[in-house]
Design a protein around this nucleic acid. Sequence first.
DNA 1: GAAAAACTTTACGTTAACGTAAAGCAATAG
DNA 2: CTATTGCTTTACGTTAACGTAAAGTTTTTC
Lengths: 133, 133
Amino acid sequence: MDQTFSISDLAREFDITTRSIRFYEDQGLIEPTRRGQTRIYSRRDHVRLKLIMRGKRLGFSLAEIRDIIDIYDASPSSSSIQLNQMLNIIKQKKQALEQQIRDIAVIRLELETTEERCMKALRELPSDSAEND
Amino acid sequence: MDQTFSISDLAREFDITTRSIRFYEDQGLIEPTRRGQTRIYSRRDHVRLKLIMRGKRLGFSLAEIRDIIDIYDASPSSSSIQLNQMLNIIKQKKQALEQQIRDIAVIRLELETTEERCMKALRELPSDSAEND
DNA sequence: GAAAAACTTTACGTTAACGTAAAGCAATAG
DNA sequence: CTATTGCTTTACGTTAACGTAAAGTTTTTC
């Protein structure tokens, strides 16, 4: 239980540099403890990093990712104002995701159409040696 | 027919600056003609811009967007080598999109769980005046 | 116990994607 | 006619997200 990780553990697992990991800490996205000088990363930090990578794959900035993290572990005893603010941010993020889904659908269709064209063109090429290179 | 656009037409429509539009031209993503000094944008440029914005919303770099554009209007008479290269790039882009879809699903679920928590917390707050602000 | 491996901080460098300011030409509005 | 509006080029500035190098500490290995 209570698994911990070194910085290079995480760097290996997520295929990023230790520089990036320290940078994320700098930006307040993860909060490792210390044993002497050395950073110790918790299960929680591990989860955070996974979240960060997901966000990056979607093209979110670190600031936006921080928004999502903040939402993710907001204090359960918030005021109604804070709660409504959060609901607004959630709404915005959700809308962005819906837009991304639509965008993906369009690009995907275009790629697949082009893929078909390519494959057809390949089939209609003389099949023996590489004639037109 | 043969509709054309001024740079500010496009800036307005896509809600970007003229600086950005010129920058995209600089990067070879669009190719307006000229009337004297002034840039004239074609229907084709318009389509390109739409594609660029879509790519940006998905977090693609301009270089990646250029890849997709190149795929989109590749010469129909390519060699088998070129065709296979294109098929490979298409495959990669498609895989990235699939990953994005998975990422969206996860984040979406997290957002909706949190949304529920927020709404529940709101309902359980005394409904009269703003007590905890 | 000495060298190598893994960690640390500090700090300047880099790239993408523009922002912004300066200075000039061209059309058109008053 | 001149003043505003819209376009242009040139070029330096800026921000995010790290890369990279230097110089030091600590831990592990032989």
